[in-house]
């Protein structure tokens, strides 16, 4: 973590003091601090400047953090750079908008050391995942396996070349920001690649990730009629979060998905790989009074897809 380079964007110099001191105490490099979104965008568009992660204040004069986040995500070299939004309790209403435009996580002001340590630790893990994904991408493009690249079947690795997906950690973080009532208005549904474990054993890591990226793109194509958040959850499974007010016909989606995946049949056949097939689980929502609502909701969605092809029942998680 000592080598991680952070950009901190906040119009308040007092916050820069606090952040710099706390990060130094935690063993991080002092962040590069700028006081406006415009200055941050200039910094980030400079190809000679490298940043591993960005801390971005939401409420700033002129361009706010949400608009800045959109601009940063539009930069090809920062499309996956972790962005942690920073806001006061009063500004928490904006967090939803920030996640919708690509934020990874958020931190509440005034910051305390324990929370900052936990959040930066999460960003460290994401940066490591991105580095792994980039290495795999590079290896894939050079058609060369890298024996050193290892990850377990269960790991929710970031998929290369799959723009519609967000990281699983970011999906969890987003759901954790929702109030219990808001969470209740969301639905989770999981997708599982049939024979995923066997594919993992049979293929090298890069081929496996390529397969998962193809499935992820196909799922995203099927879900495009509604707003959704989709993440690869590991174990050849995907989790999708939807608004509960838009009912999902899981059987229809399963059929559409089969049709989308058929587009890959010729390529997979020519490579001697099995045809891709995926099943869809039941839609699951969180109980109003459940504990550990987020983990439970995602866990139940994944459990349902492991059980059978299409559930007709609507599970109530928690």
């Amino acid at each position: 973590m000592g080598n991680m380079r952070y950009l901190a964007v906040d119009d308040d110099p007092a916050f820069h003091y606090v952040l710099t001191k706390m990060m130094s105490q935690l063993g991080y490099q002092p962040p590069v601090c700028v006081t406006s979104a415009a200055e941050a965008l200039t910094c980030l568009s400079n190809p000679h400047e490298h940043f591993d992660a960005i801390l971005l204040d939401i409420q700033m004069p002129e361009m706010d953090g949400i608009e800045a986040c959109q601009h940063i995500r539009a930069m090809a070299h920062h499309s996956t750079t972790p962005i942690m939004m920073v806001t006061t309790m009063v500004g928490r209403d904006y967090v939803d908008q920030a996640f919708a435009v690509g934020a990874t996580d958020y931190l509440t002001k005034p910051i305390n050391r324990i929370e900052l340590q936990a959040r930066l630790g999460m960003l460290d893990r994401l940066v490591q995942e991105h580095n792994l994904a980039r290495s795999l991408q590079f290896a894939m493009e050079s058609m060369d396996d890298v024996p050193g690249m290892r990850f377990a079947f269960e790991e929710p690795v970031a998929l290369p070349k799959c723009g519609s997906l967000i990281e699983y950690l970011a999906l969890e973080n987003h759901l954790l920001t929702l109030s219990r009532l808001k969470l209740h208005s969301h639905t989770a549904v999981a997708f599982q690649v049939v024979g995923g474990a066997s594919l993992f054993r049979r293929l090298n890591r890069m081929e496996f990730l390529d397969c998962m990226a193809d499935v992820g793109s196909a799922i995203a194509a099927c879900m495009k009629r509604q707003s959704f958040l989709l993440a690869y959850a590991g174990s050849a499974e995907f989790v999708c979060i939807l608004n509960r007010s838009q009912p999902l016909d899981t059987q229809e989606i399963e059929h559409e998905l089969a049709a989308e995946l058929m587009a890959y049949d010729a390529v997979y056949e020519s490579l001697g790989l099995p045809m891709l097939e995926a099943r869809v689980g039941a839609t699951v929502h969180s109980g109003l009074f459940s504990t550990s609502a987020v983990k439970t909701m995602l866990g139940r969605a994944r459990a349902s897809v492991r059980g059978q092809s299409t559930y007709q029942l609507q599970f109530l998680a928690g």
Partner: peptide, 28 residues
């Protein structure tokens, strides 16, 4: 609101928790 937002973001870090929460109330 802008000024109160800044105060509420850092006052507690300098040991002025009540100032921070009052600034937050003003911001709200």
């Amino acid at each position: 609101c802008k000024v109160a937002h800044k105060i509420s973001g850092t006052a507690a870090s300098f040991g002025f928790a009540t100032l921070g929460s009052q600034a937050q109330r003003v911001e709200d």
